[in-house]
């Protein structure tokens, strides 16, 4: 299990474009030319809330993620961070 990213300020990489879809969202990185998927509408809400939240955890809270679901969202956000779709926002 990678370290938690919940306490960190994250945002979408400026290279990445997000398109909501019925099943969640498509993410396209103009940097790597890769397409990825968010298979969950709530994960999309979290990602969209990042820009206006101080931490990833706050974004989860404002998207209505229940505390028991936090680990799953933490893992998904870490993977998005590792693949460069999310980046850490300069404080």
């Amino acid at each position: 299990m990678p370290d938690s990213v919940l306490h960190r300020p994250l945002e979408l990489s400026p290279d990445v474009s997000v398109r909501p879809e019925p099943f969640g969202a498509l993410l396209y990185s103009f940097g790597t030319r890769r397409l990825s998927f968010l298979k969950d509408r709530r994960l999309l809400d979290v990602v969209q809330a990042l820009a206006t939240s101080d931490t990833a955890q706050q974004a989860c809270a404002s998207a209505g993620v229940a505390p028991e679901s936090l680990p799953a969202f933490d893992a998904a956000l870490s993977r998005l961070l590792r693949t460069g779709l999310l980046v850490e926002r300069a404080a």
């Binding site: 398109r19 879809e21 019925p22 099943f23 969640g24 298979k39 709530r42 969202f73």
Partner: peptide, 20 residues
């Protein structure tokens, strides 16, 4: 956070805009 339907099935049902 898994959806009941595999992603490929969502594709088969179409998207709001084309990917390709």
């Amino acid at each position: 956070m898994t959806t009941a339907v595999p992603l490929v099935e969502h594709f088969a049902l179409g998207l709001d805009a084309p990917i390709c």
